[in-house]
Amino acid sequence: MEITTKSFEELSTKELYQILQLRSEVFVVEQDCVYQDVDGKDEKALHVMGIKNENVVAYTRMFGPGDYFKNPSIGRVVVAKEERKYGYGKIIMQASIDELGKRFPKNTIELSAQTYLLKFYNGLGFVVQGEEYLEDGIPHVRMVKN
């Protein structure tokens, strides 16, 4: 899997289509959650794509301080179902953490994590901050990494 990071303006139509298709497959269909994925925030985000055989199979979007949360943040972390056995979630997250570290050194990184993935994010150095809450009907917690 090859990792690439692009601004919204740099994304090709094909890449954008594949990103939105992957997010819809996992967050809407697989997780059976009806919500507005196209939320108007993609234009501010940096898009980290894991590409395999010319297809986006893993993805995150990142924001600078104040663009989404107070701190730099990572969201929409997703890996295609058939690709999860290869550890691509950890790879795409580490690439995102590294990229934010380069762009915003010495900043805390923040995310809103689905509660069932706490162990995954703990393994990447994130810790829970605050109480569990519902986001689009799914339990989440705020997590930070210093």
Rank of each mutant, 00 (worst) to 15 (best):
41 K>T: 00
106 K>G: 05
61 R>P: 06
62 M>Y: 04
96 S>F: 06
96 S>H: 12
34 V>Y: 06
117 L>E: 08
55 N>H: 10
46 L>E: 01
115 T>D: 00
101 G>C: 10
122 N>T: 09
57 V>M: 11
26 V>A: 06
60 T>H: 05
104 F>V: 08
113 A>I: 08
22 L>Q: 00
108 T>M: 05
95 A>Y: 06
131 E>R: 11
45 A>V: 04
33 C>M: 02
23 R>C: 03
51 I>V: 07
93 M>F: 05
136 D>R: 12
72 P>K: 08
30 E>K: 13
98 D>P: 09
9 E>P: 02
18 Q>F: 09
81 K>I: 12
126 F>Q: 10
39 D>F: 02
14 K>Y: 05
69 F>Q: 14
72 P>F: 06
91 I>Q: 11
21 Q>E: 13
91 I>L: 15
29 V>K: 06
70 K>S: 15
49 M>Y: 03
74 I>Y: 06
46 L>H: 02
38 V>G: 01
8 F>V: 03
72 P>C: 11
8 F>T: 00
46 L>C: 07
13 T>Q: 10
28 V>Y: 04
45 A>K: 04
93 M>P: 02
137 G>I: 15
132 E>W: 10
82 E>H: 12
99 E>F: 12
7 S>M: 09
44 K>G: 04
45 A>W: 02
34 V>G: 09
104 F>T: 03
112 S>C: 15
41 K>I: 01
78 V>Q: 00
39 D>N: 01
42 D>T: 00
103 R>K: 15
100 L>N: 02
138 I>Y: 07
104 F>M: 15
92 I>D: 01
131 E>N: 12
10 E>A: 10
86 Y>F: 14
131 E>K: 12
39 D>M: 02
55 N>V: 11
125 G>C: 11
117 L>K: 11
5 T>V: 13
26 V>G: 03
100 L>A: 04
44 K>S: 02
22 L>G: 00
3 I>T: 12
55 N>M: 14
97 I>C: 13
38 V>A: 04
27 F>T: 02
12 S>Q: 12
1 M>N: 05
27 F>S: 12
139 P>Q: 12
27 F>D: 04
